[in-house]
Simulated assay, not measured.
Amino acid sequence: MLNALEVFTTVVVGLMVGVEFSVAFVMNRIFNALPDDSNQLAHAHGGRMLGAVMPFWYIGSLVLSAVWAIAGWRDGGAGLVVTAAALLIVSVIMSILLLVPINNRNKAWTPESRPADWKEQLNRWERFHYVRVAVIIAAFTLLVTALV
């Protein structure tokens, strides 16, 4: 049963990393190449879509990692899993404090209602997102290492 939990947790976190990596290095680059109105609307739509799913995914990944750490406490990789869970906590805190406030503003903007500094706010979100992606990649790497 522990093996199934380990694999399931690793897959869930790995998929989350893949989505967030794609947002950072594929989707945002595509959106930023669009004309301003389309760019802003694409970011707002993406913020609404992923903003509805990602809280559950981040918290679910953290809970799964914590359960794995507790269930496998006597196993050799428990320290790696605990460290991965700690990194996932950092990613959740970063999300709540840094990224979600910007996303909550962004997802309500329209070309008519967006503030003058909307591009600067989205650039700030992207910089924070790059750091968060690095944090969750590190967590995923630790989980994979603990798995093998």
Rank of each mutant, 00 (worst) to 15 (best):
M1L: 13
N3F: 00
L5E: 09
E6N: 14
T9H: 03
V12I: 11
V12Q: 08
V13T: 08
M16W: 10
V17A: 01
G18F: 09
V19N: 06
E20S: 14
F21A: 15
F21G: 13
F21Y: 15
S22C: 14
S22K: 02
A24I: 11
F25G: 13
F25H: 12
M27D: 08
M27H: 06
N28I: 15
I30A: 12
I30F: 05
F31I: 06
A33P: 08
L34E: 14
P35Y: 10
S38V: 14
S38A: 15
S38F: 10
Q40W: 08
L41V: 09
A42M: 13
H43D: 00
A44K: 03
G46T: 09
R48V: 01
R48D: 00
R48A: 06
G51W: 11
A52C: 00
A52W: 04
A52P: 02
V53P: 02
M54W: 01
P55A: 10
P55Y: 01
F56T: 07
F56Q: 04
Y58E: 12
S61H: 00
S61M: 06
S61Q: 07
S61V: 04
L62E: 01
L62T: 04
S65T: 01
S65K: 03
W68E: 04
A69S: 09
I70Y: 12
R74C: 00
A78M: 03
G79V: 02
V82P: 01
V82C: 04
T83G: 00
A84V: 05
A85Y: 01
L87Y: 03
V90G: 07
S91N: 03
S91G: 03
S91P: 02
S91T: 01
V92N: 06
I93Y: 02
M94T: 09
S95H: 10
L98H: 08
L99K: 14
V100E: 11
P101A: 06
I102E: 10
N103R: 09
N106S: 11
A108H: 12
S113L: 02
P115M: 04
A116Q: 13
W118A: 08
W118I: 02
K119G: 12
W125E: 07
E126D: 15
E126P: 00
H129P: 13
H129R: 14
H129I: 13
I136E: 01
I136N: 02
I136Q: 05
I137N: 07
A138F: 10
A138Y: 07
A139V: 09
A139K: 09
F140C: 13
T141M: 07
L143M: 07
T145H: 08
T145Y: 05
L147D: 07
V148T: 06
V148N: 05
